[in-house]
Design a protein around this nucleic acid. Sequence first.
DNA 1: TCGGTAGCAAACACGCTGTTCTTCAAAATG
DNA 2: CATTTTGAAGAACAGCGTGTTTGCTACCGA
Lengths: 193, 193
Amino acid sequence: MKQQKRDRRSQRTQRLVSAAFAEIMTEKSYEKILVQDILDRAGIGRTTFYAHYFDKEDVLNHIVEQELAMLTGHIAQAAQGQRIIPSLELFVHAYASANQQLRALICSSAGKPLLDALQAALCRMIEPTLSTLCTERRSPPIPLPVVSEYLAGAFLTLFKWWVTADMPYPPEQMDSIFQQLALPGVWAMLKEK
Amino acid sequence: MKQQKRDRRSQRTQRLVSAAFAEIMTEKSYEKILVQDILDRAGIGRTTFYAHYFDKEDVLNHIVEQELAMLTGHIAQAAQGQRIIPSLELFVHAYASANQQLRALICSSAGKPLLDALQAALCRMIEPTLSTLCTERRSPPIPLPVVSEYLAGAFLTLFKWWVTADMPYPPEQMDSIFQQLALPGVWAMLKEK
DNA sequence: TCGGTAGCAAACACGCTGTTCTTCAAAATG
DNA sequence: CATTTTGAAGAACAGCGTGTTTGCTACCGA
């Protein structure tokens, strides 16, 4: 339904709009962005815009989808099962791409959908791994969904802080910090009985 | 500046508006709430509303301030320095008050200001405690601001999940879970060296 | 050469906002 | 008890942003 408009039209306008939107988002908060701003910046007409998108929110969703796809893409590439959570890959990806778009998205309250989706994606990835680790030693003292939520959230907290603070440390160090802080609790839980 | 209107007018209207707003927020997302909705629900006139508030956002800020004051109030009551973070008090408070307002706020993207403020408040509380614990054993391997950010975020992640999931466990258990998962990493960091 | 496609500009109706003005009732004041 | 003062209601209004419609242009492929 929501895809119809986008899919069967030219790529050009989409690129222009995405670029313009990303640019504007680094300058003012999502709520204050007008459709007119996007038109001006992208250099396209009103009609064209509404031929591709339903409204401003549709553009945001588009961007979020893109960004999420990039992130989960990098997650998938990482050999699974090795570590519980592919934290290093995510830190590295963000560091390498260094796009302001991601930063603006994470800071703004409009980025909540992205962060929520990431959290959910991480949880979906963590829980099975955790589950197999656990059946070997049976009966977890803490419900597994809670543990995955914690792990995903702990990672995202550090990730958010790091991106917001303009990535003051290299990705390797951030990964190491995450491992040191967040994982001992999980190991301890798995060991006891 | 922003306070002028609110402070010098009657309390009655504020109560009506707050109640109406909290009610509506459990029914539709913040973005979709119209001023007219508030007027209808609160049973007040347009003129009266704008005599007290600048706009819809002003109401939201008002509510956020209230909620934040309640939470930080409960934090302050907790004897400080005992534990690094007064997690139990926060779980208990949320459980006892059981207000839908808090839940709606946390779920909606409009609640980001509240969560950010809470995160900041927790950090401000954690860092000094952490700092004293650390000078005794000198030179932390991980920058302390990062550690406080992690701790506050790890707590809030669990808190958010718990509230969103309608508080399926008693506060004591949640506190215990938090202690088991999030703290070992911090102790380990403090011990080494 | 001609249909189809993608675009622009202008104009528009609509919905919501925030303001203004007029009226009214209930307090406060003497 | 009469009279100011105050807070609020209602209606009307201008302003702005949205999303749609219309008419026109340009390009592209058969």
